[in-house]
Design a protein around this nucleic acid. Structure first.
Lengths: 158, 158
DNA sequence: CAATACTTGACTAAAATACTTGGTTTATTT
DNA sequence: AAATAAACCAAGTATTTTAGTCAAGTATTG
């Protein structure tokens, strides 16, 4: 399992989607502007995630993307795996024919490590993340000046 | 914390070093050939690790590198951190001024995740890794056919 | 039918990764 | 002292990945 910015983009986008798609589909354009990620890059990421069966695209006006499962049934590991294509980190093409002169010493070591991290991220669902984020959002807002009252509900969509 | 192949190279090399430098310094050339990593790339990685104070270079013939601490006092997280320079993954330049219009939703989420992984890798020492690897080495050898038969191994590379 | 918005693919720019070349210093060995 | 073996150093190059762009499609709703 690799941890790069690409995976973070994907998780961010999914989190945004989970948050805003409660009632209706969310367009990538919206996510792009909210999260300041380029639209076409998002398109690429979502194409992969759609193939992985975690989001559904709804075409036509009023369309966009929705989660294809409950947010609590989508874990972080699969999001990351969906977007970054697997590199065989083994240098011996998967088959462990590499212990005669002990090249790739780290073979199963790194695999093990990587697997641990994957397991960890697999236990965290998008739903949990959303909860956690909302909690910290609230905490933040409470620490903030809340005084500016009137109209403001667009804060969400802005 | 980022997990990339670069970090894996570093860990691999350090593991090799820990394993072979019990008695005398190990040359990068040796590590390079054993682990099939380019010599100069290793030089770059070791330059960083030397600056981080985890290895010592010994010049002149018969020289090479040694660990500057006991293998049990070097953890995996610091190896990785030594070689890949930090990117601010926050998009808001470290200072968390990013909750007004909620860009970077994942801000502290990802930081948290990343921190968890770092903590995990920090608890694993080079020494432990070495032990573990030696154990599995032995296990492999015991499990193997030591007879090495006729020719048919090409199925693997096909 | 027309507008909207997803789909697809090819392409480009920038960054990170991996490697190369060609040195210099330092210490050992002959 | 000379040759040698190694670390150390500094550019530069190639490859891959990341991120973003563009444009021609296709499906859906109104």
């Amino acid at each position: 399992m690799r941890l790069t910015t690409k995976g973070r983009y994907a998780v961010t986008a999914m989190l945004d989607l989970a948050f805003h798609s409660q009632t209706k589909p969310v367009t990538l354009t919206d996510i792009a502007t909210r999260q300041t990620i380029s639209l076409s890059y998002l398109e690429q990421l979502f194409a992969r995630m759609r193939k992985a069966g975690m989001v559904k695209g709804v075409r036509g006006p009023g369309g966009g993307y929705t989660l294809s499962r409950d947010a609590y049934q989508i874990n972080i590991a699969e999001i990351i795996e969906a977007v970054d294509e697997p590199v065989d980190s083994t240098k011996c093409g998967g088959k462990s024919n590499c212990h005669n002169d002990q090249p790739c010493l780290t073979h199963d070591l790194w695999m093990g490590l990587s697997e641990q991290i994957r397991a960890y991220l697999k236990e965290i669902s998008l739903g949990q993340l959303l909860e956690r984020d909302l909690v910290s959002e609230v905490a933040m807002r409470q620490g903030e000046q809340v005084i500016e009252m009137p109209v403001r509900h667009e804060r969400m969509s802005a």
